[in-house]
Design a protein around this nucleic acid. Structure first.
Lengths: 227, 227
DNA sequence: CGGCATCCGGGAAGATACTG
DNA sequence: CAGTATCTTCCCGGATGCCG
């Protein structure tokens, strides 16, 4: 099968693998769809809600293209759920370093505006992108996050960070609020007390553990565009 | 200044840094322009020649956008050259991990076609992408490459690889031919003797050193799109 | 010739309405 | 809820021409 038929876009006709990657996932919205699938299967409507601005027909096209390229798979959940979801193939999941590399680079952009809407998955992935193992040695914490009806757990131990969709369950501290408010706490270094007073965040459990987690991350430095 | 004015494209309006990266370098051809600038300043015509299929007006637009975003800078070479070139800013050069991550991922694509045209810079960057320090311990080689009138040198020592535009000069072996033929030698594991017999490559210097370099790289494995 | 503006055709993206 | 159909807008790509 010809490549143009797979993504139904134009090909760069370049043997360079980077160019080929752009043939596969370089179309508008494609990489953000992958981002939203990085933490597990999602429904069509979930994806639409997490990608403000995408229209239904474009999302349909992207999912079709990614599916025929072997990056995304559609699956029907077993009854009684019987609902259709989209998930990454093993190869699709291997695109995570691309998503993280893009984030690490652009967070230093002078034009980056952290006040825009932020999806829960995007926030969770940002932890993976900015996590510094050297800084996390000897730190052992587990934090739960709740955004609406989505919950996640983040664990730091043995200088490694793991993120997953999971119950608050066995975490040491739990945070509820908007993803952007959590970002303000961690990356903007806004004081937790202030965010609680504003009603932006609600915390239960061991607050000192949460602060220990926050201190794992530093303020991103802005890039030098003059040299 | 509003972001939309910088790249003159549409914005994702997403606080996620990955989305912002796509605002900056997600337009068609943008990342390939960066790729071609990764190994040093280039002229407009050089870029056009290395990016078959790009039209002059699109290249102009991309260069303008990347320049106003602080990723690319245009510079006038001092006389007597007095010619205009484009080069990466310090921040633009930091996008290299993105280019390499895309390449590492897509080289495993079932649809990747290595027989398409390949630019010299793309080949040189592929060395950086696929270099395995563990495999290169105790190896110390320097190879020169010539593609038309462009020459590069690659050095491996102390489990590190360095690539640069440079004379053949002090390298131990020198290779001339098309970038695709070098790729066939290194990634396709086509025998050097065969490529020489076909007239695809010409080698001078210590052939054993060249073979030692070739052996640093392994055949890329194809991805699993079924699980 | 290098760099860039202009015009145009085709096609992808965006918005909205509609259907099972 | 999960898409499809339709229409509009705008980007991409190709051709041409201008200017230093």
């Amino acid at each position: 099968m010809k490549l143009e038929k797979i993504t139904s876009g134009r090909s760069y006709d370049d043997a360079c693998a980077t160019a080929h990657a752009l043939d596969l996932i370089g179309e508008r919205w494609a990489l953000l769809v992958l981002r939203e699938l990085m933490l597990g299967a999602r429904r069509f409507g979930d994806l639409r809600a997490s990608l403000p601005g995408i229209s239904a027909n474009v999302l349909t096209q992207r999912l079709e293209g990614l599916e025929s390229a072997g990056i995304v798979r559609r699956r029907k959940l077993s009854p009684p759920a019987s609902v259709q979801v989209y998930e990454l193939t093993a190869w699709g999941a291997e695109a995570e370093p691309i998503v993280l590399a893009l984030g690490r680079w652009a967070v230093r952009s002078p034009w980056h505006d952290p006040s825009l809407p932020l999806s829960p998955v995007a926030l969770m992935l940002s932890f993976r992108a900015k996590f510094d193992p050297a800084r996390a040695r000897r730190v052992r914490v587990s934090i739960g996050f709740r955004f609406g009806d989505e919950t996640f757990s983040v664990m730091v131990r043995d200088a490694a960070l793991t993120t997953a969709r999971a119950d608050f369950g066995a975490t040491e501290a739990q945070v509820s609020g908007a993803p952007g408010s959590v970002a303000a706490l961690i990356y903007g270094k806004v004081r937790l007390e202030k965010l609680e007073r504003q009603g932006a965040l609600a915390v239960t459990g061991d607050r000192r553990m949460l602060q220990r987690f926050v201190d794992l991350f530093e303020l991103p430095s802005k890039a030098d565009t003059s040299t």
